[in-house]
Design a protein around this nucleic acid. Structure first.
Lengths: 349, 349
DNA sequence: TTGTACGCGTTATCAA
DNA sequence: TTGATAACGCGTACAA
């Protein structure tokens, strides 16, 4: 049996036990394949196994000058939007000998910069910035600056959301999706719209509002600014915004409400219920994202489906293929309108 | 302005720019507070700032012999159960100068061992194993063995779920919660129960079934084994299991169904609807966990509330307080029955 | 208080 | 093919 040495087993221990030099042990365990005699290789592998040797990744990183760490920075890991993206990243990373470290900014944009610094300290090979960019030039400038430094150190940066930064980006077609949704809702016969708009500075929210307004405009419908209520990008934000909206309008002013994401839509649905309104009979309601956990709410939510796991996987692919890139690349992910019971069926003539 | 040097800035660069020795620079930036003259300290800090210096965490780790990396291993990060726990861990880690690395086993128990090896290679300070233990002695033995090695290297291991491993554990009182739930359901007047039981080998699922059966037994009610249907611990698993159950029993055999977690309950609710059953009029339905994302489904789910973020935070506290422990500690987290609309109101005499 | 020099565990370069 | 040895960047005795 193998004895259990106290403290970490080093390559030197392995080499000693196998009766070979450090260099040989290193080559047998990690270096290029065909350079160590089979007998010695066997001895080294056996020694490593019996000693439970695990290479010190820190030391390897120092010697090699690079790591296998990829940082993933999200706004809030408890939000299903981000946990789905994270799952996509993790799955894509499978088999790539990569360790994913998770950062959660708790929805405070400035913290992205902090994580970037920390991950630079870790000499992370790459960082994936998942989550909406903000309309805040101070933060954006600081971020851009830190990204420069990070990339100058040889790191890779990939963003998910808007093409605001000069890095490889998985662009989510929020605007297009919202435009299509608007068109579909008009097709269903809706005419008087309200919007629960999320935070004004959040580009994802803003793009969706813009796209929606655009879609309505093409159908000759105006979106009254008074019917656009901002609120947090959360369930409670949606709940509150819907409450305000309902308080501000009179019955008949509204026949359909678009919440810029599904969790807000769910909050809005509750607010409707509390106000005695039935969806979709009294009011149509639509969301955005098609969060899988929310697919079974009743009435089922009309929304724009986003392949979130694919978004994460795509970001990871940008990371692994970054070596051969010549300039910042863009991958566009489209959403697809899904009509369900929270909006009424199309009026058949 | 600061020039942007090509490649990483090292402490030597900072020392040179500040005109001090390496040791002084090190002390000014990291070492104990009161050992560097104010003037020199200022010079060093200024130099570091102007050069965008970020300490090489790998090198620090090597020199110090320890890291600030904590590994979090979950079954599936897309599952709200785990993403809530992860959020709790992240929030608790806030301000502790710790980087959390995320592992997702994709529900394959053997992968926990792989992550443990990888994290040992990283010289992680600690690993949090979140997720049910399995009734699989092969895996458990391998895990125990690898945990020994990990701890022997000075690492800390914390488990969340059952006290199956000889490590600090956040024990979730599944059994107790399910027992209480059973009692509450009996109080509501239910008598003929079915259970959607999850995978047989998963201890969390099994504990909940046992506890539920226990609770019924105390009320003098027998749980017919034919009414216990196993299935995956997911929405689809619940959907399928409920389908089987409804196919196997005749109307009147059943007046309430307990799904061992909320996502299964949601799947079950859909299956009910598909079979023309209305919850709770035709059938009561209860879950477990009180997943926040699912709180707004309709009818609202009767369930056992688990403070998942607190679970994660508690696990992290065990990590940071591990130094002063003498033997494996246990923190028990209780659930609380929450009665909602998916079960009928109590019959008033 | 400040500086010198060694060690952390590994890879990679050079000889042998 | 194998082995000795110099990096890698930092912390920290030890000496000054």
């Amino acid at each position: 049996m193998a004895e259990q040495p106290r403290g970490s087993v080093t390559l030197m221990d392995v080499a000693a036990r196998a009766g070979v030099s450090l260099a040989t042990a290193s080559r047998a365990l990690n270096g290029s394949t065909r350079k160590v005699g089979d007998d010695l290789r066997e001895r080294v592998l056996a020694a490593a196994r019996s000693l439970n040797y695990a290479p010190n990744a820190q030391a390897q990183a120092m010697a090699r000058g690079r790591t296998n760490v990829v940082g993933l920075v999200v706004h809030d890991i408890a939000d299903p939007y981000f946990s789905s993206i994270a799952a996509g990243v993790m799955e894509a990373a499978e088999g790539h000998q990569v360790l994913v470290t998770l950062g959660s900014t708790l929805r405070s944009p400035g913290r992205e910069v902090d994580y970037l610094v920390a991950l630079r300290g870790q000499r992370s090979r790459a960082v994936i910035l998942a989550g909406s960019r903000m309309d805040d030039s101070t933060v954006a400038d600081a971020l851009r600056r830190e990204i420069d430094i990070f990339e100058n150190d040889g790191g890779i940066v990939v963003a998910i959301s808007q093409k605001q930064l000069p890095v490889d980006t998985v662009v989510i077609e929020n605007r297009l999706g919202a435009r299509d949704l608007a068109a579909s809702l008009v097709d269903l016969g809706y005419r008087r719209f309200g919007v629960l708009a999320g935070p004004d500075a959040m580009l994802t929210a803003r793009d969706r509002v813009h796209g929606f307004r655009e879609g309505l405009g093409r159908a000759g419908i105006d979106l009254d600014p008074a019917f656009v209520v901002h609120g947090a990008f959360t369930r409670d934000g949606g709940h509150q915004a819907m409450g305000s909206l309902l308080g501000a309008v009179s019955a008949g002013d509204l026949d359909c409400v678009f919440a810029v994401n599904d969790v807000m839509a769910v909050g809005a649905m509750v607010a409707c219920r509390e106000n005695g309104l039935t969806v979709p009979q009294d009011l149509g309601l639509a969301g955005f994202d098609d969060i899988s956990t929310l697919r079974d709410i009743n009435p089922a939510l009309t929304t724009v489906r986003l392949p979130l796991e694919k978004v994460g996987a795509t970001a990871f692919e940008l990371v692994v293929s970054a070596a051969e890139r010549t300039k910042a690349r863009t991958r566009r992910i489209k959403g697809e309108v899904v009509l369900r019971q929270s909006t009424r069926p199309a009026v058949t003539p």
